[in-house]
C-alpha cells in the first residue's frame, strides 16, 4: 500500500504526461514477463482481429491496460480536466434515473470501470454502488483508499448471504448497482454462449437477480482510445421492470446472450480494451493459427 501511495503521489506531482513515460516501462515489463497472460491475450487478439496477433497488437493491449490503471489515480482524485470524454447512451441512464426505480449496470473487464463510475457520478449525478467478490472488494478498497484517502466508495460484497438483499435495498432506494458480468467463480450457474467464435461460460447470476428484482439492465463501459481520450457507452441489455412476476429462464438466457453480443460488438470496435488476461475459452480457435510465423 505504501508503494501504491508513493506511486499515486508521484503521478499527481509529476503530472499525467510526465508520469506516463513510466508506463512504457511497466507495459514492457508485463510484455516480457507474463507468459501465461501472454498466451491468453494472444488467443483473444487472434479471435477478435481474425488474424494472428503480432507483438505490436499485444503491446497495444498491455499499454491500454496500464494506461487505464494509471489514469485511475487522476479519475479518483477528480482531475477530470485532464481528459476528453465522449458518451453514448447517456440519455438512457438519465431516463432510468428519472423513473427512480434503480438499475443494474453490467460491465466487463473491458476498458476502464473507474472512468465510467467517476464520470457517471460527475456527469449525471449517478451514484453507483459496486458489487464485487469479497477478496477483490477488500483489495480494491484498500488500494483505492491509498490512492485517494478522502474517497468514500460504496462497495457491496458479493459471495456472502445477504449480498443480493443489499443489492435489492439499493435498487429500491433508486440507486444504480454496477457489476461485472464476464467472470465466473465456478460453482454458480452459467450459460455457454458463443463469444468471438467459440463457446465461453458467462454467469447467469447478475441477470437472474435483475429479473427477480424487476429492474432495467444496461451495459456500461469506458473505452480507452489513446492519449487522454475515453469513450463511455451505456446500452440497454434488458428491461425487466415491466415484466410480470416469474420471469422465465428463457428471458434470462436471452438477456445473457444479448449482454454477450453487446460485449462482443464492443470488443471488435475497441479490440485492445479487453483486460481478461486469463483462459476465457475452453477450446482453442479453429482455422486461425494463434502465433504468427515470425514470433
Amino acid at each position: 500500500m505504501l508503494l501504491l501511495r508513493l506511486m499515486s503521489w508521484i503521478s499527481l506531482r509529476l503530472g499525467r504526461r510526465l508520469s506516463r513515460s513510466v508506463l512504457y516501462g511497466i507495459a514492457a515489463y508485463f510484455f516480457v514477463f507474463a507468459p501465461r497472460a501472454r498466451r491468453h491475450a494472444r488467443e483473444y487478439l487472434c479471435r477478435v482481429l481474425g488474424r494472428p496477433a503480432t507483438p505490436i497488437d499485444r503491446f497495444r493491449q498491455i499499454f491500454a491496460f496500464a494506461s487505464t490503471i494509471h489514469d485511475r489515480v487522476y479519475l479518483l482524485n477528480q482531475r477530470f480536466e485532464l481528459f476528453q470524454f465522449s458518451i453514448d447512451g447517456e440519455e438512457l441512464v438519465r431516463a432510468a434515473q428519472a423513473q427512480g426505480g434503480g438499475a443494474l449496470l453490467i460491465g466487463a473487464h473491458l476498458g476502464s470501470f473507474e472512468a465510467t463510475r467517476a464520470l457517471g457520478q460527475r456527469q449525471a449525478g449517478l451514484e453507483i454502488a459496486m458489487a464485487m467478490y469479497a477478496n477483490n472488494a477488500r483489495k480494491i478498497n484498500s488500494a483505492l483508499t491509498a490512492i485517494c484517502p478522502r474517497l468514500k466508495l460504496d462497495i457491496i460484497e458479493l459471495g456472502h448471504m445477504p449480498a443480493m438483499l443489499e443489492i435489492r435495498a439499493r435498487l429500491a432506494a433508486g440507486s444504480f448497482v454496477g457489476m461485472l458480468g464476464d467472470r465466473t467463480l465456478g460453482g454458480e450457474s452459467v450459460e455457454q454462449v458463443m463469444f468471438l467464435g467459440a463457446p465461453a461460460s458467462f454467469p447467469l447470476g447478475p441477470l437472474r437477480a435483475a429479473a427477480m428484482l424487476h429492474c432495467p439492465v444496461y451495459f456500461m463501459a469506458a473505452f480507452y482510445l489513446g492519449g487522454n481520450r475515453y469513450h463511455i457507452v451505456f446500452e440497454q441489455i434488458a428491461d425487466f421492470s415491466t415484466t410480470g412476476p416469474g420471469v422465465g429462464a428463457n428471458a434470462i438466457s436471452a438477456a445473457v446472450r444479448q449482454y454477450v453480443a453487446v460485449v462482443e460488438r464492443h470488443c471488435r470496435l475497441y479490440p485492445y480494451n479487453w483486460f481478461n488476461f486469463l483462459d476465457f475459452w475452453q477450446a482453442p480457435p479453429a482455422g486461425v493459427p494463434l502465433v504468427s510465423g515470425t514470433e
Binding site: L158, A163, L165, E188, G205, A209, M212
Partner: peptide
C-alpha cells in the same frame, strides 16, 4: 446461494407479508 436467498425473501414477503432485509 445469495440469489436463492433473495428469491426466498421475495416469496416470503409476498406470501406472509414478512420483510427480510439486508
Amino acid at each position: 446461494d445469495s440469489i436463492d436467498i433473495l428469491e426466498i425473501a421475495l416469496v416470503v414477503s409476498k406470501r406472509y407479508g414478512v420483510e427480510i432485509k439486508a
